[in-house]
Each structure stands twice: as C-alpha cells, then as structure tokens.
Design a protein around this nucleic acid. Structure first.
Lengths: 229, 229
DNA sequence: CAGCATTTTTAGGCATACCGAAATTATACG
DNA sequence: CGTATAATTTCGGTATGCCTAAAAATGCTG
C-alpha cells in the first residue's frame, strides 16, 4: 500500500495550470483550454488526465471538464507556492525585475527541495504576495486573498491601486512595466481602456492589458454591477 | 546545420562524472566505473556513450575507456561549476552545512539559468573554491587548482591543513564534520589512518575517510615518494 | 430534431533513458 | 597459447510524455 508518489514536472504543470485557472474564474477548465495553456496537443491532455484522475488528484467525467480534488488542490497550491516564492526571491534578492521572473520560476519550481524553499521563505520574511501581486499559498494550502476588480470590467471614474498583474503574458508584463505600471501603481480609469497615472500621464490599455490588471478598489457607487461573462 | 543542442540532465550527469573522475586520477574512466558511479546498469552507459560520442562530446573506442573531447570538457566543467557554486551558495547564504549540500546541488545544477547562476556567483564574490575545498571552474572552463596530497597516501609525521574533502560519500562527510574535520582543519598524521587535531584529540580514519581527505602540505622530506596504484 | 461543427478520445508512433539477459570481446593466467 | 573471467555491447522491454490522424461523442443551430 504505497503512498501514491506521482509527482513529475509534467504532472505538476497540469495541476498548477488547473489551479491557476480556478483562481481567475470559478468554472472548471476544459481539456482543450488546458492543452492551449500548456501548449500541448489535446490528446496528450487526455492521457495525463487519466493518470491524474487515477491518482485521485482530479475528477473528470469523459468529455467533461476537469477539477481538482482536495488532495489535488493541496498539491497544486504547493506548486504555485513554490513558483511565487521563487519569483519573489528572484526580485528581492537576485536582481530580477518583476516582469522577468516567470520563466526561471517555471523551471525551478520543480527542483527545489522543501527545505530550501522554506529557507527562502524565511529569508524573505514569509511574504503573502509575489511581485505580480499574486497571493502566495501557505504551506498548508491556505490562501489569504484580497478582493480585486479586473480593469477591463471596471467602470470609468474608478481610482484604485494595482493589486495584481497576471503574469501569463510576458509581452503585457513588459509593456506595462516599461510605462511604470505595476503592483502598487495608482490608476484612474478615464474610460474603457484608458487610464491616468499619478504623474498625470495618460495610457491606453490593450484588451490583453486591461484583462491582466486587477485593481484594489471599492465599486464606485453602483450596487455591485453584475460581472458579465 | 543546427548547433548540436544535446543537453539533458542525464547527459550532464554523465559528463560531470567523467570530469570528476579525471580530477582525481589522470587515467580515463571505464564504462563500468561510470555505471557504478552513476548507479545505473552498464548497458545504459553503452547507450548514452554512443550518443555523447556522436555529439562530439566524448571519445570512445569500443570496449575501451572514455574521455572528454575539448568541447565535452567545456560542457562538463560548466556543470561542475554550477554544482559547486550552488553548494557554496547553500552554505554561505541558505543555512546549509557543508556536508548537507550535495543532493540539493545535484538537482539544481540542471535547472538554473546562466543568468541566475551569474547572479549567485556575483553575490558570493566569485569564489574560487566550494565548501568542500573543490575548485570552482571559471565560466571559460579554466581552473586554478591547488596541489594536494591524499591523506591515505601521505607519510606519518606530516602536518597539514585540510584542503579538500571529497563529497562523494555523504557518510564520510557527516562523520568527519561531526568530529570537526573539514576544509581548513589542521591535522597531524600520526600513522596510517590516525590523526591528531589541533585541540589534541586523536581520530582514527576509515579507509574511505583517509581517501577522501586532501592535505595542503609539502611532502615531509623524502624525495617525492612514488604514489602507488 | 437532425445534421454539422467542435471537442474529446482512441490508436499508433517517436524519443529519452532506463532495465535484465544473452552474446561478444578483451585480458589475464596457468 | 588457449581458455576462463571480466568487461562491454547487443537485444528485446518498460515507463514517461509528447505527437498526428482518425474515430467518437457532444451540443448547437437551423
């Protein structure tokens, strides 16, 4: 009765990606979306999904979507924790900018021992948030999330601090970083896709950019507008 | 005409092990010794050796020993450089003891980018020697080696500083570390396998220990005793 | 509510990297 | 100098993890 030791870089990437998807939207991810995110063929996903389901890490009805079991969720959050702690370390101690850390973390997250990870965590003072503003799950999988509002879905007139910038697209990251927009930046929304920085400069946001920026802001006044699909 | 991109964790381990062997002894390594060192079957070595030879990294005549080509030597020294820089970093910054770093470095050496490695190197002040006393090859593959004498082959009466302790056997490492013997320790050889520390305590060395300790010492007086096979 | 487009799965393949067993080669010794 | 022993290689096999192409299921739309 061995303790299911299934954990490879590949399986960790699957779990992490499923987890990351759920962070954004409550709907479970489909196999094709997972394949697209991972950059692999759908048939490869089918194969791995069968293994992960057999290992009790995800649930999956044939031709249906995927979701993490409690055990899978714990595993996934451990990978995300690694990823984000590594990113934080790279920025705080190793001279990286917050828009440069993703690829390095993507590889290292599969290699660090628990001991080394904890040493890094301790050195950094057990941070709760990574350089993109993403919450770092605790070792037990718990996450203290701050509520945020996607810039693309916020109404004009809103003023808020950038809470988080999704690190999915490096081009978006670099473009925003170049113009001084990052976690902590104060933005005023002038209209759809137009913002003003504190220094007065106006910046137009691409759709991808507006979808990547999360603002920490009370909904202006309307009684919590229904977020649309 | 692609630039031969052959570099996997497995191939790096082969090259590193061949390199490390040559550091100890000038004779080229045999396939069976390599298999033993890597903990894999000889037939697996034959297979990989063919690939490495085809890639121009090693030379190999059938049923003969293995040696690195100039290109292979460069590749190997890069891996060893990674390994030893990582070990140094773990000890100097991450709270590891010098007898605990090997396994972690063994994995990380295949994962760090050149950029991160250089950031670590710079942070550490570009060290020339790792925590076991092993020389860290420069980025161009050059090594500034200090001459040393294996304790097992040194004559009684000799007094010297421990230059290096081979990190091959963790049991040896831990045993010596526990009794305060490490790089920098001053030892007086009383007889074969018997040493006295500076604090006066006497320590018997196992054969494995005596073979792992390198002393920085002039040969006592005899005209350079012939080291025996 | 039937047909068609999309999604998912199946089936067969490929590359890496390992294994054990059997054949082959080299070497060493009597 | 021939033969036993030891080292090396060859030969099938296994597991992972990816692929393309084709089949099957789903579900949307007219």
């Amino acid at each position: 009765m061995k303790h299911n030791g299934t954990s490879t870089p590949a399986s960790e990437d699957y779990l992490k990606t499923i987890y990351a998807h759920t962070e954004w939207q409550p709907e479970p991810i489909t196999p094709s979306a997972l394949a697209a995110r991972l950059g692999i063929a759908p048939s490869s996903v089918t194969e791995m999904v069968k293994k992960l389901a057999a290992a009790g890490l995800i649930t999956h009805v044939p031709y249906g979507p995927l979701s993490l079991t409690p055990v899978g969720l714990l595993r996934a959050s451990a990978v995300v924790r690694r990823h984000r702690l590594i990113e934080t370390w790279l920025v705080r101690e190793m001279g990286y900018d917050w828009d440069e850390v993703h690829d390095e973390a993507e590889i290292l997250e599969h290699s660090l021992s628990d001991r080394l990870l904890d040493a890094i965590d301790e050195r950094l003072g057990r941070p709760a948030v990574d350089p993109h503003g993403d919450a770092i799950p605790a070792a037990d999988g718990s996450v203290t999330a701050r509520a945020g509002l996607v810039a693309a879905e916020a109404g004009p007139g809103l003023v808020g601090v950038v809470l988080r910038i999704s690190d999915r697209d490096p081009v978006v990251l670099r473009g925003l970083a170049r113009d001084g927009i990052g976690p902590g930046t104060v933005l005023a929304l002038l209209g759809p896709g137009v913002v003003r920085l504190l220094n007065g400069s106006i910046r137009h946001l691409t759709d991808a950019e507006a979808a990547s920026i999360w603002l920490d802001a009370e909904p202006t006044d309307e009684p919590r507008a229904e977020s649309k699909r």
